[in-house]
Design a protein around this nucleic acid. Sequence first.
DNA 1: TAACTCACG
DNA 2: ACGTACGTGAGTTAC
Length: 874
Amino acid sequence: MPRMVILDGNSLVYRAFYALPTLTTADGRPTNVLHGFLTMLFRLEQEQQPDYWVVAFDKTKATVRIEQYAGYKAQRKETPEGLRPQFDYLKDVLTELEVPMLELAGYEADDLIAVVAKQAEAQGMEVQVYTGDRDALQLISPKTNIYLTKKGISEVECYDEHALWERYQLRPYQIIDLKGLMGDSSDNIPGVPGIGEKTALKLLLEFETVEGVLANVDKVSGKKVQSNLKEFADQAILSKKLATMLTEVPLVFSLDDLVYRRSQANKVLPVLLKYDLRNVTRLWQERHKDNGEPIGESPDVLLEDWPERKLTDADWLAQIDQWRERKDPLTLACRYEGTGLQGGHWLEWGIATLGESFTFAREVVSAEVLKAWSELMGDDHVPKTVADSKTVALLLANEGTCLKGVVLDMSLASYLIQSSRPKFAPLDLVKEYVANQAVFENVATEAAALAQVAPKFEEEIHSLGLAHLLHEIEEPLSLVLAQVERHGIAVDAEKLSSFGEGISITLKQLENGIYALAEETFNINSPKQLGIILFEKLGLPTAKKTKTGYSTDAETLEELRLAHPVVAKILDYRQLNKLMSTYVNGLLAQVKDGRIHTTFQQTVATTGRLSSTEPNLQNIPMRLEQGRQLRKVFHPTEPGWVLLSADYSQIELRILAHYSQDPLLCESFSLGQDVHTRTAAEVFGISLDAVTSEMRRSAKAVNFGLVYGLTEFGLSRDLGIPRKESKFYIEQYFKRYSGVKQYLENVVAKAKQEGQVHTLLNRLRRIPELLSSNRVQRQFGERIAMNTPVQGTAADIMKLAMIKVAEGLKPYRAAMLLQVHDELLLQVAPEDLQSVARVLIEAMENAFPLSVPMTVECKVGPNWYDMQSFKPME
DNA sequence: TAACTCACG
DNA sequence: ACGTACGTGAGTTAC
């Protein structure tokens, strides 16, 4: 449950002022309130870890209450001399701490507190109110607790309904009756003369309210009390009214404005020092260090000059020998021509080790030295640090050389430390930690620079708990990916071409048809021109707009399908044109020797997924039949071999089940049920048999949405239903799957505190969006917080599986061809099909066992289209 | 280069 | 009152 912490600024400031001795800055400004208030603030921040918080202040020139009663607070003294300026100081500091503040002319902090508390409760939050004013006890509810300052300010006493009863034998709503009877001298609420706390409590225990007391005034014991009650009945009623916190306040704010944000050192430290708050500064630093603070703020490596040693042929042999003998740690940089994948070749290597650097140039060394070099690279016992091991491995592979012994891949390390950073090129990596100018004059200085910052990466990796993920998963995987890329996948270019010819013909017909219906020719591929034709010339109704004009995307056009015959043709045209340009032409341009070699990007996706480029083989058409046909062109390289695919079934929902431990979701997977059907049964409150396909479709959309950070809007759009209906689905879902709801709330709350989330294997994603001043951005951050642990854990598990599969495949005639997030595609010799399928399933299902079973489904076929379900024999 | 559109999980 | 599902890459147009 999200937690809202509300502080009564005025009350706490007064408490601090009177509780603490006079303290001043060097130039004599009073600061004792700052000390007291901030000490308390930091303590509660640490102990309560609020999700939302706010400090409310009075702004009482002429309060609403003075209109009601002229004497209200009349006798309150002027604000003491040393206190007045401290309000401004405090607001100054709170601003830099990014603690939200509220004040409203004519209202007291009390009233604002009541309003915020009420709204927060309505949003299902737990509310804590910190104040020295017992009036606030009237706000107590099952969800709201009041923390009253005890002696001093930093100690507080928590009041809930139970504690209130224990202490006063009062219900929260009776607090105002208490004040009505006994009054409050500090606010100059008169109450009834002669009635103090004791009498008031006794009366309320018997008669419940002021009204109850007055109605039964004759039964009240004590003559004087009785007569005073009669005489001052009106005053009692008025006093009660004055003590009532107003909740009808014209206060415009959104709870999102009160979201807790981590304070930033560059803002906080200057303002604390401005007021000479040394102890408070120390406290702040203690509370905020080591807690998700962004890295790389203080570059602290001064690059040294590692002298370059020039070697002759004979020296090189001796040197390489020595390196192998002594297992010296080598840091490598590489210059190359072409690309690793397209048979590119390295030109020279920079080598840095133990304060020295070297340039190993192909041109100047003999074949014998090259052979020694090759052995050095393949020696598992010689530890190597590189910036990008996949590229290095590919370049070496082009020479028939293996890369072994990589102990640190700095780009991968950097990616794990900051998954969202845009670049991981060697120079960027070095700049991350280096204070002086880093320029790579040559490959030797590059290696030397990399070697000097490498320990910083290793250090950071360890302190973030990423060592296992880096060394046991990402680094080994990069070598697996190098193999997969290098192998490539066979493509039937002729079939692809003839596929394209067929498309071309249809495309031409559609084009002419569109021109005829539009009665002019134009560029159909231009959304701008298309928009003008559809919405201006043909006058079709405009639904959506983009920044620059009319929206013409498929969703919009689908709405207009019946409005004009040209629309359907445009939709068809779009679909075929996409197939033609992106897939037929795009892929044909990438075919080399009958194969396509994609590049898997390992440092791009912020969630930890791989991506695939040049070409992207992770988005080959599947959903629509026409596009799906394209998969027929992907086939095994070897005649007679088959393609074997293996899909994780519902991996993300299983991970959600594991994280949330929701009983229904877990049970659904343990029993091997169709999870969407089960969800439909739960949401609609019917039996499994009664679920219609339409219900299942809705439930499926809910399940998908869950993983993305469900919104009413998204679901209603996805299902094409009204917001009301999607809201209902979501409510029903969370009623039944309360564990899931709980989990999602927790993960967001924790993310807000830490500014980051992590996956099961501890992959980290910082979410600066959570700190954004823009509400839309913050909500985006919340959805990221819900999605990343799930999507990222799926990526982790698949990566683990790939390493196991690559190892398990070695005895067989088989190769890994592609990874498509939850699917692996292999090619296998028919005689090894059974064994390989068993290895595959075993590796994937048990890569990282969860509390629910993981299941993998295999398919086999002669090409990527004609795939038939396949189960290996036991 | 940005914006739009659309392919995948 | 506003702008919204999560993660990618590629082709095209238009500035």
